[in-house]
Design a protein around this nucleic acid. Structure first.
Length: 883
DNA sequence: TATTCGCGGGG
DNA sequence: GTGTACGCGAATA
């Protein structure tokens, strides 16, 4: 039989560990495989061990073996391999040895991962094993049980069909206006939605209050028991919902505890579902099932203004959500039958939306691909934690090559994190950022280094196992920051060889993408993305303070080589190739090319990439990435560009690219983002400074005249506590206070989002916040000055400054000079007879070398790039004479 | 210019 | 479970 691995754990049977592999077969049946005979082990470095182990529990055997320690280039040495009977005793043995000053290795590898790594098994991979009869257990709920004596890994990219269950709860607080407390307030409603029909139904609503389409239970306790029963009977593979890890599951588990119910709804009938709270975060463990929270996946994958279910559904899958005000759930729960039905419907809707988000956006695919590539179980990949993924991955490779890795040292980590001791992490310098050349540039090529950091690691053989610690007399290279690594001839680093394999695998996959059908292409694309993600994470790992192998020498060697590489590239671009570098960051350079043709620019880009690559060391490769038809840097790390690139069919496509410039921020009103987007578009695509300024002025005029749609001026914030409980003065809180004083209908409560606008007046800003409805009904005027100064100007001034427009010009402060006056007032410039157009057609100045347009010429009479200026008219540039 | 504070999602 | 470890903008020193 064959099945795909969803989860792994172990149980002790007759004082011996039995591994349990939970999975699914191709027909969609749940499977549990049992594997016996594998024992936990770890290593210790010490002259003698037997004496130290005396009196310690669970020791099965001790063996002297040869292994290589990974920190610094060194020869294999004798270490003790200590095998235990019970994985759970490892901590006790490890700590006892540590107390005696004995270092341990790999004494913190989870038993399931120890087995998986030794057996070459990873999450979401397939296993093939012989069918077996007579499994003697009632402790596992799965459709097929199998005793795995021998097994093998099947190499396939296929996925078994998974069964999803989405759920959502409604809870009601005893005291109005505060969040329900799981200590005291019961669960009111639970909705469950199934991807596959469950007893010929798509969904179920549970409650203690009867209603249409509601399965009524006599108590909260019965309802919670029924909830478990449904999950177990339906046998869900994936549990989903919106913020279930942060809210619903912890709440349900607490209520089960209060009702004396053991929470057993995993695929193990004896292990309870656990909720461990760490650093204010919940970690839920449900044996054999996957927890996939739509909320956290969307938060990680999308940059949105807000992440509430209503907003997210609307933005990502176009589903409008009928909303019940959070603060009024109590009213609906206790209200008329009609009101109650609305609440039940609302509860159901939330489950439906959470499931739809998962399926319509294919949220699982990325994580499944990452699980397959990294070897970590799907649940662990979903939870995040890149370093865990990396450690798990390299452990396997290190072990195969005879290396063992140290156990995590919490004391050292604590020292690193709170910066005591010699905090080396401060010495870790990042990539080099080139000071951007001011102004709007045309025809800018972006060249970047293909996987720069992984390539540097490979090129210079950078690895903990090749780092020279003493002054050893072996062939080595010295990095720009003074570290030394042995040459590959002496020893090939493990990390470089891992990266070589990953990068080769990736280019193989990328080649396959080209002639694959739609479905395979999608899968392969996810695979190559997962490989890239994994490969790119290695560099950061060594500079991460909590890493088991934390080494600043390694991390800074990589960035030092990176800076050296970019420096030499810039120099080559300017001195040898003769192009102007306008910007660059870490692994990219942007250069200006003297052509208007995209084809020609592309040709130049590819050519430079090739020529530069030839003179770069090792496998370093500079490649043409894309063309910015227009490029406007604001500052380091902040720029925008109108990008041109070819799609898969070779057609030119365009796109506006923004780095470090936000148009969505939760404290900005809609008008801000909208105006920014429009102005950026005008500047980049039309290259028309005047039009951008006039667009801005129109928006300002609209504000002054009160012509802007009120909706676009609304700023929203959540009321997190009762208004009187706020210490400072905050606009949204002041609005609620006013509404309470006025006795408005639909008073907002704690947890509701408050939308407000700022109106004219003499008081403090926060006091001038008002409810938009009130503003509309009473014809109040909005404070246009506030919107101009606080909403529009801060982001837009930066953009206008970059194209040479000052704040005064934008706001039309003082007397606006006409172009004619500018010209006649300027000492350096006089106009030649205009032949092509009338002077009144002149709409600014244009630089003949960089193409930048300005409303007024700088006093020097030259563009900031040094190029000469001409009048810009609809007919084209007209000469300006400089006297 | 650096450091602490508060909040998001959920009812 | 042989564990784990938010992130960012605003307010404040």
């Amino acid at each position: 039989m064959e099945f795909q691995i969803l989860d792994v754990d172990y149980v002790m049977v007759n004082e011996r560990p039995v591994l349990r592999i939970f999975g699914k077969d191709m027909e969609g049946k749940s499977v549990c495989g049992f594997y016996e005979g594998f024992l936990p082990y770890f290593y210790a470095a010490s002259d003698d061990i037997n004496e130290s182990l005396e009196g310690l529990p669970s020791i099965h055997g001790v063996e002297k073996v040869k292994r290589t320690l990974p920190m610094g280039y060194q020869e294999p040495r004798d270490v003790w391999k200590i095998t235990l009977k019970n994985p759970a005793k490892t901590v006790e043995v490890r700590e006892a040895l540590k107390k005696k000053g004995i270092s341990t290795y790999e004494a913190d590898i989870l038993f399931k991962y120890r087995w998986m790594n030794d057996s070459d098994i990873g999450g979401m991979r397939w296993i093939s094993t012989k069918e077996s009869n007579g499994i003697n257990t009632t402790s596992v709920s799965a459709q097929r049980l199998v005793q795995m004596k021998e097994f093998e890994i099947i190499d396939t990219e296929e996925d078994a069909p998974l069964r999803y269950l989405a759920f959502d709860i409604e809870t009601v607080g005893k005291n109005e206006g505060s969040m329900p407390d799981s200590e005291t307030d019961p669960v009111a409603l639970i909705s469950l939605v199934f991807s596959d029909d469950y007893r010929r139904t798509k969904s179920i609503i549970l409650s203690t209050r009867p209603g249409d389409g509601i399965e009524a239970l006599s108590s909260e306790k019965d309802m919670l028991i029924r909830f478990m029963e449904i999950i177990n009977e339906y046998d869900a593979d994936v549990l989903t919902g919106f913020n279930i890890v942060g809210y619903d599951l912890p709440y349900i588990l607490k209520r089960m505890e209060k009702n004396n119910i053991r929470p057993v709804f995993g695929r193990c009938k004896t292990k309870s579902v656990r909720d461990d709270v760490f650093a204010g975060r919940h970690k839920i463990t449900i044996t054999g099932r996957i927890i996939a929270d739509s909320f956290s996946m969307i938060k990680k994958g999308w940059n949105l203004k807000r992440y509430g279910l209503d907003f997210v559904s609307k933005a990502l899958i176009g589903e409008e959500k009928k909303d019940v005000k959070k603060s009024e759930i109590g009213k609906f729960w206790r209200g008329s039958q009609e009101k109650y039905q609305i609440l039940a419907d609302y509860c159901l809707q939330d489950s439906i939306l959470a499931l739809k988000l998962l399926t319509k956006l294919d949220l699982m695919d990325k994580y499944i691909a990452l699980s397959k590539i990294s070897g970590s179980l799907l649940n662990d990949v979903l939870e995040g934690g890149e370093s865990q993924r990396i450690e798990n991955y390299y452990l396997k490779v290190f072990n195969k090559e005879g290396f063992i890795i140290p156990s995590k040292n919490n004391e050292q980590i604590a020292e690193r994190t709170n910066g005591n001791g010699d905090d080396e992490s401060k010495d870790l310098k990042g990539g080099f950022v080139i000071e951007p050349k001011k102004g709007l540039h045309s025809m800018v090529l972006v060249l970047d280094f293909k996987s720069m950091y992984p390539s540097l690691i490979r090129t210079y053989n950078i690895c903990p196992t090749t780092l020279l610690i003493g002054n050893e007399n072996v062939e080595h290279i010295t990095t720009p920051n003074g570290s030394m690594f042995v040459k590959p001839g002496v020893r090939r680093g493990v990390i470089p060889s891992i990266l070589e394999n990953l990068m080769e695998e990736r280019s193989k996959v990328k080649k396959m993408v080209r002639n694959a059908d739609e479905k395979t292409r999608k899968m392969l694309d996810l695979k190559q993305f997962a490989i890239k993600t994994l490969a790119n994470a290695f560099y950061g790992y060594f500079g991460y303070t909590r890493a088991k192998i934390y080494n600043v020498a390694i991390a800074s060697s990589v960035t030092a080589f990176g800076r050296e590489t970019i420096h030499s590239t810039v120099k080559a671009m300017e001195e040898d190739f003769g192009y102007e570098v306008v910007y660059g960051d870490t692994d990219s350079v942007m250069i200006k090319v003297p052509t208007e043709s995209m084809e020609e620019a592309e040709k130049i880009g590819k050519d430079i990439g090739k020529k530069m690559t030839e003179r770069l060391p090792g496998i370093m490769e500079l490649e043409f990435e894309k063309l910015f038809k227009r490029f406007l840097p604001l500052t380091k790390k902040r720029y925008m560009g109108w990008s041109m690139f070819r799609d898969k069919t070779g057609e030119w496509k365009d796109d506006i690219v923004m780095k470090g410039i936000e148009t969505v921020r939760r404290d900005w009103c809609e008008l801000t983002g909208e105006t920014m987007k429009e102005i950026i578009e005008i500047i980049l695509k039309k290259n028309d400074t005047k039009a951008a300024v006039s667009y801005f002025k129109d928006v300002v005029k609209g504000l002054l005249d009160g012509d802007v749609d009120l909706e676009k001026l609304v700023i929203t914030k959540t009321l997190t506590r009762r208004p009187e409980k706020y210490a400072g003065v905050q606009p949204h809180v002041e609005v609620v206070k006013k509404m309470e004083k006025r006795n408005d209908m639909d008073l907002p409560g704690v947890g509701d989002r408050i939308g407000y606008v700022i109106v004219k007046g003499m008081e403090l800003l926060s006091k001038r916040a008002e409810d938009p409805n009130f503003v509309r009904e009473n014809g109040l005027s909005i404070d246009s000055k506030y919107y101009i100064d606080n909403q529009l100007l801060p982001p837009l001034e930066r953009i206008f400054t970059a194209i040479g427009i000052s704040r005064d010009e934008l706001l039309g402060a003082g007397k606006q000079m006409g172009l004619f006056e500018v010209i006649s007032n300027s000492k350096n410039i006089c106009a030649e007879p205009v032949t092509k157009g009338k002077l009144s057609d002149v709409n600014g100045f244009i630089c003949m070398s960089c193409g930048m347009k300005t409303a007024r010429p700088p006093l020097s009479g030259k563009c900031s790039c040094g190029g000469s200026l001409k009048f810009s008219t609809p007919e084209g540039p007209v000469s300006v004479a400089v006297s």
